[in-house]
Simulated assay, not measured.
Amino acid sequence: MTTDNTPTETMEQSAGSLLKAAREQKQWSQKEVASQLNLRLSLIESMETDQYEASILPTFIRGYLRSYARLLKISEQQVLAAYERHHGNQAIEPRAMHSFSNRTEKEATESRFMLLTYLVGAILLGLLVLWWWQTHWLTDDTNTAVSERLSAPLEMVTAVEPETTPTSVTEPQILPEQPELITPIAEPAVLSEPSSSAPAQDQEALPADAAIPDSQQLTMRFADDCWIDVVDADGSRVAFGTKRAGYQLQVQGRPPFTVTLGNPSVVEITLDAEPVDMSGFRSGRVAKFSVPLQD
C-alpha cells in the first residue's frame, strides 16, 4: 500500500514543496541557500511557498527554480514540471498583458512624436511665409522712400527760387539713356532765374581780361550711379537727377558751370573736349565746384 501511494504524492507535490523537502534533508537554512545562490532571502521563501511576486516574469522564476534544484542536486525537470502544473496558466497571462502594454505605450509615444513633428513643421512654414511677406512689402516701401528722397531736393530748390521772368534756355543735348532699373527724375525744361548776385560773383572770380564765351559744351561720363545738379552762368539748371553707370551726358550753356556731384570720383568731365581734373575730390563725398575749375 505504501508503494502505490508514493508516486502519487510525489507527482502532486508543488515545486516549492520539492525544494523545501530537499533543503531540509540536507539540513540547510534558507539563509544559507540565498547566500550560495546570491538571491534575496525573500525570493527563497517565495519559491518554497509557491507565492511569487507579480513583478517577476515567469522566465526568471523558471531560472531561479532551475538554479535552486541544481544546488540541491534534484531533478530540474521534475521541479519545472511541478511549477508548470500549478502555475502554467497563470504564467502565460501576465506575459501577454505585459507585451500588449509595451506596444500600446510605444504607439502612444510615436503618436505624440508625430504630432510634435507636424506642429514644428507648421510653425516653420508660417515663419517662412511671414518672412517672405515682410521682405516683399519692405522692398516696395524702400523703393518708394528712395523716389521721394530723390525728388525732395528739386522741390526744395523750386520753393526758394524767386519769381522772376523766365528766360529762354538752350535745350541740353542728351544722348539716349539706357534702360534703368530706377527711373531718373524728370528734368525741368524751364526753371526760374535766380537773383543776379550769383552770376555776378562767378564773373568777378574770372580774370578781368578773360573773354567769357557765349556757350560751351559740358560732357560728363559716369562710371557708376551718381546724383548731379548742373547750373550755368545764367542761373539755368541744365542737368539734374540721378545718372546710371555708363551714361554720357552732354549739355550746352554759358560757363562757368556750377556742378554738384554726389560721388565725384565716378565722373569724368570735359569742357569743349578739354578734360577737367577731378583728382582733388574725395570719393563718396558730395562736391560742389565750378567748371572751368578756379584756382
Results as ranks from 00 to 15, higher is better:
residue 137 W to T: 15
residue 243 K to V: 06
residue 228 I to G: 11
residue 57 L to E: 11
residue 212 I to Q: 15
residue 249 L to C: 02
residue 156 M to Y: 13
residue 18 L to T: 08
residue 225 D to W: 07
residue 19 L to C: 02
residue 219 T to Q: 10
residue 72 L to E: 10
residue 198 A to Y: 11
residue 137 W to P: 00
residue 290 S to P: 01
residue 287 A to N: 05
residue 241 G to T: 10
residue 186 A to Q: 12
residue 26 K to Q: 13
residue 12 E to M: 04
residue 261 L to C: 03
residue 277 D to R: 02
residue 38 N to Q: 07
residue 138 L to H: 03
residue 273 A to P: 06
residue 140 D to K: 14
residue 261 L to P: 03
residue 243 K to C: 07
residue 227 W to N: 10
residue 19 L to Y: 02
residue 6 T to F: 03
residue 160 V to G: 08
residue 227 W to D: 10
residue 201 Q to A: 15
residue 180 E to G: 06
residue 241 G to H: 03
residue 263 N to P: 08
residue 293 L to A: 11
residue 161 E to Q: 09
residue 19 L to G: 02
residue 90 Q to I: 06
residue 21 A to M: 06
residue 267 V to P: 06
residue 258 T to L: 00
residue 85 R to Y: 04
residue 129 V to W: 06
residue 227 W to E: 07
residue 152 A to F: 06
residue 168 S to H: 14
residue 237 R to Q: 15
residue 195 S to A: 10
residue 176 P to Q: 06
residue 45 E to K: 11
residue 134 Q to M: 09
residue 51 Q to Y: 09
residue 240 F to V: 11
residue 167 T to K: 14
residue 211 A to G: 04
residue 266 V to F: 01
residue 122 A to F: 13
residue 235 G to R: 07
residue 163 E to V: 14
residue 157 V to K: 12
residue 84 E to W: 03
residue 193 E to I: 15
residue 284 G to N: 09
residue 166 P to H: 06
residue 147 S to Q: 11
residue 137 W to G: 09
residue 273 A to V: 01
residue 51 Q to R: 13
residue 146 V to E: 13
residue 120 V to M: 14
residue 224 D to W: 10
residue 184 P to S: 09
residue 204 E to N: 13
residue 26 K to I: 08
residue 3 T to V: 04
residue 52 Y to K: 01
residue 251 V to H: 11
residue 202 D to H: 07
residue 214 D to G: 05
residue 70 R to D: 12
residue 89 N to W: 08
residue 229 D to T: 08
residue 21 A to K: 04
residue 116 L to D: 01
residue 137 W to E: 15
residue 11 M to P: 01
residue 187 E to R: 12
residue 274 E to R: 13
residue 278 M to E: 01
residue 91 A to N: 08
residue 65 L to K: 02
residue 153 P to K: 00
residue 52 Y to D: 08
residue 201 Q to T: 13
residue 256 P to W: 05
residue 20 K to W: 04
residue 98 H to W: 11
residue 11 M to I: 14
residue 153 P to H: 07
residue 18 L to G: 09
residue 110 E to H: 13
residue 187 E to Q: 15
residue 75 S to Y: 04
residue 220 M to A: 12
residue 13 Q to H: 00
residue 217 Q to A: 14
residue 14 S to E: 12
residue 43 L to T: 14
residue 49 T to V: 01
residue 98 H to C: 14
residue 221 R to Q: 13
residue 280 G to K: 01
residue 163 E to R: 14
residue 74 I to T: 02
residue 172 P to I: 08
residue 252 Q to E: 15
residue 215 S to P: 05
residue 174 I to M: 03
residue 170 T to F: 03
residue 41 L to A: 09
residue 24 E to G: 02
residue 81 A to L: 13
residue 6 T to M: 08
residue 4 D to K: 05
residue 52 Y to W: 04
residue 26 K to V: 05
residue 18 L to M: 12
residue 234 D to I: 02
residue 237 R to K: 14
residue 250 Q to S: 09
residue 162 P to L: 05
residue 169 V to E: 00
residue 97 M to I: 11
residue 263 N to G: 00
residue 180 E to V: 10
residue 47 M to A: 12
residue 246 G to I: 00
